[in-house]
Design a protein around this nucleic acid. Structure first.
Length: 786
DNA sequence: CAGTGAGCGAGCTTCCGCTTGACTT
């Protein structure tokens, strides 16, 4: 039996450390926190110094029992959770729950997972830092108070099942404000002038005017003037420029680069990184540190020296600058830098490659560039034409890695071979005009946020942690505050005026503007909730709120303040405001917009957020007749819908006529427009409008649906009518007594015998008896909904 | 899956951070 029990947070880490420590030590994992406030209960005793009530979640009970058993039989228990606020709390909860005695308990921390670092940690144990634990309790309790007091206000004032919190509400605010900027944006036109000139040796010089014109007349005037003007090289400036590599990856920068370079979503990046971590290819993927261990720097240096040469090496130490960083881990890097590639899925290979390159580049020499700027005068004018060129003198880190631009417009960095050269020129030299083009341009509306851009912004504000960026993004989508989608954009025409061979000509071109894919777009609900929260709870929605409370948590961690005093001070003001706002009589007025009067009935028409989302209301509640309601369609918004569009929504259901002796009806349901015929439903695809669809089109859709229904059944058995082999979203499956069973991959669905099917059903039934509580719970929930 | 929402009623919803599984109707 092992004399020592070491407890760390992550099982992958436990496995590695076990190898270093040998059989005298048993290394186990706590899988993160083992205790928390009850999930569905406030669990804070406000009248008793805000005492938290902690419970062990059901799915942690078995694990805690195992840890208890192991700790009882060990002489010394080493609490080796991470060296940050949450890690300290995990150690404290473990000590409490496992009932550890101080004399045989040691708290240790290490900064890298290497044998010497761990042995050194064991040589230097300390006690649990109660102040740091208290700072964590303050954080936990504050978040619970904010979340569980604010959310019910939204249920009452806006609609049920909404949520608010210190992190998610600010995330939505960022998106909502950007959307507002876009709505208020007024595009302005201007004219940009570009030109191509020739040197005496026919060298091509492409340049741009250093002034933009606001009117067409000004642009045409310059072109007219240029017909007979002389162009002279007025000045040449050559400047050396150096570029330095970006620091190694943190969670946030990895998410950003994987999004830009590989098109991964934030959640996808984390899933793939997790699997790279578990198979031992990379260090821990949830980190805010840019630090590399000394051992890692050594091996990276060797790698650079041996593969690229000593002149490409420059050892660098990076320091984390982001607010609230806790640096319990290293930066994200390959565990073995000599592995240039790894096996695995295509996604794993790509992400590993990105991490490898970024890590190597971070220890490489600066790139040396030479930038040239040539000013060309136009006689009789004060404006200049400017040509610029760039030459790479030494590529340095650019040899392996180029960080992409943040503007995320599909533009990539120019370095890496794409630089342009200028022909040799001298000051005073004359140049000949090849052409000059004035292009009409429009100022661009601000970009919407992508997931990764939102993460970047949150990190800058010190809001949220590496472990929560991805979950936060899915929460605000689950609450329907935000949808990830594309805004199609609009076609806009612009003109181009060209001077060539002494003649000026004009032609019209067109471009697509505001076209964005995969961006986060706030919904009506998101906008209304944000308006409400920023108006009534400005303190919580303040971009600096987290930074402020963090500095107070720091005071607690340093022992300068008691955590419950801090919370009391916050709670008093906050709770009073909750009561005040709850008492306001503004039921359902939040976000309401009156559109006008229905021409047909003379009744008022308004839009607002209803129980099930945005709706339009016809008539008022004071009227003798009850008001009528209709949901807005997916592409409609409370903010932009017109009276005409709103009134049209009441034209449903439409009767199209008869088909096979039954009525064909068109209506718009919870899941969009549909056709109802003979008790069956058929969805209407996006390219057809429910308002204009014809009986003929509808019957075609019905036929199509019937055909796909027919394909749904792969096989039936006369002996067992309740058992069917069906074609579903994820391929073939067996349906038996309303339950579904998956068919093993190696079996061919078409040729299954009844016996084989029965065996699969029996197998599955046995398997689910033993464990898989989650599955049955999920089923029960789904059934209860009906 | 498939209008339901404007009253007198039940009970439900919700936070942020730490960590993986077992699931893919």
């Amino acid at each position: 039996m092992a004399e020592n029990l070491v407890i760390v947070e992550s099982p992958a880490k436990a496995k590695t450390i076990q190898k270093f420590l040998g059989k005298d030590y048993k290394v186990m994992s706590s899988y993160g926190h083992i205790r928390d406030l009850e999930k569905k209960d406030f669990s804070i005793d406000v009248n008793n110094d805000f005492e938290p009530v902690y419970v062990i979640p059901e799915d942690k009970e078995a694990l805690v029992e195992e840890l208890k058993k192991a700790s009882k039989s060990a002489k010394t228990v080493w609490l080796a959770s991470d060296e940050d606020r949450e890690g300290e709390a995990i150690a404290w909860h473990l000590a409490q729950v496992l009932d550890l005695k101080k004399e045989n308990t040691r708290r240790i921390v290490f900064h890298e997972i290497t044998k010497p670092a761990i042995l050194e940690a064991i040589e230097n144990p300390r006690d649990i830092d109660e102040n740091l634990v208290d700072a964590q309790q303050a954080r936990r309790v504050l978040d619970r108070i904010v979340g569980f007091e604010l959310s019910p206000v939204l249920w009452k004032k806006i609609k049920p099942a909404l949520s608010a919190g210190r992190v998610q509400s600010v995330a939505v605010r960022l998106l909502a404000e950007r959307e507002q900027e876009i709505r208020n944006f007024k595009s302005e036109q201007y004219y940009r002038v570009g030109s191509e000139l020739l040197t005496a040796d026919s060298g091509n010089v492409s340049c741009e005017l250093n002034k933009r014109y606001s009117s067409r007349e000004q642009a045409v005037e310059l072109l007219e003037h240029s017909k007979s003007a002389t162009f002279t090289v007025a000045d040449i400036q050559v400047k050396p420029v150096k570029k330095s590599p970006a620091p190694p990856f943190t969670t946030s920068t990895l998410q950003q680069e994987a999004s830009r370079k590989l098109g991964f979503s934030v959640a996808q990046t984390m899933r793939v990184a997790q699997s790279l971590y578990e198979s031992g290819h990379i260090t821990y993927m949830r980190t805010d540190s840019v630090n590399l261990s000394s051992l890692a720097i050594g091996t990276i240096s060797n790698e650079i020296k041996s593969t690229l040469g000593e002149n490409y090496l420059k050892v660098r130490k990076y320091h984390t600058s982001s607010k609230g960083a806790q640096e319990a881990h290293e930066a994200i890097r390959p565990t073995f830098i000599s592995n240039h590639d790894i096996g695995g899925t295509a996604q794993e290979k790509k992400l590993y490659n990105l991490i490898w390159k970024r890590t190597i580049a971070s220890q490489m020499a600066d790139a040396q560039l030479e930038k040239t700027q040539v000013d060309i005068s136009i006689d009789g004018r004060s404006e200049m034409l400017v040509a610029s060129g760039e030459v790479v003198k030494f590529d340095g880190f650019l040899k392996v890695y180029i960080e992409t631009d943040d503007d995320d417009n599909g533009t990539t960095a120019t370095a890496g071979g794409d630089f342009h050269m200028l022909p040799p020129m001298k000051v005073g030299e004359k140049l000949w005009l090849k052409n000059m083009v004035a292009t009409q341009r429009f100022t661009q509306q601000p970009n919407r946020y992508s997931e990764a851009m939102l993460v970047k912004r949150l990190e800058e504000l010190g809001i949220g942690r590496p472990s929560t960026y991805a979950p936060t993004i899915s929460t605000i989508q689950a609450r329907d505050y935000v949808v990830k989608g594309e805004s199609k954009g609009v076609k806009r025409s612009f003109e181009q005026i060209t001077l060539k061979d002494g003649k000026i000509s004009t032609r019209s071109k067109s471009e697509l503007v505001g076209n964005e894919k995969g961006k986060l777009i706030p919904t009506d609900v998101g906008m209304v909730v944000n308006d409400f929260l920023t108006e009534y709870f400005p303190q919580i929605l303040d971009y600096n709120f987290t930074a402020k409370v963090e500095s107070e948590f720091d005071d607690i961690a340093e022992g300068k303040r008691k955590w419950n005093d801090e919370i009391k001070e916050f709670y008093n003001g906050f709770h009073q405001n909750i009561e005040k706002v709850s008492a306001l009589r503004l039921e359902h007025k939040v976000g309401e917009r009156v559109l006008g009067t229905d021409p047909a009935t003379g009744k008022p028409v308004s839009v607002k957020i209803g129980r099930y989302g945005p709706l339009v209301q016809l008539g008022s509640t004071d009227d003798v007749d009850k008001p009528r309601f209709a949901s807005l369609q997916k592409d409609q918004s409370v903010a932009t819908i017109t009276l005409e569009e709103a009134v049209k929504l009441f034209d449903m259901p439409r009767h199209l006529g008869d088909f096979e002796g039954s009525d064909v009806q068109v209506a718009i349901g919870r899941f969009g427009p549909y056709i109802k015929h003979d008790g069956k439903f058929v969805s209407i695809p996006k390219d057809l409008s429910p308002y204009s669809i014809t009986l003929e089109e509808a019957t075609q859709l019905i036929a199509l649906k019937r055909a796909s229904e027919a394909k749904k059944v792969i096989k039936t058995f006369d002996e067992e009518p309740e058992l069917q082999v069906l074609n579903g979203r994820f391929g073939a499956y067996i349906s038996y007594k309303k339950q579904n069973f998956k068919i093993p991959k190696k079996m061919d669905a078409e040729n299954l015998t009844l016996e084989q099917c029965r065996a699969i059903v029996a197998d599955e039934a046995n398997a689910s008896k033993g464990g898989s509580r989650k599955r049955t719970a999920g089923r029960r929930k789904a059934a209860a909904k009906k």
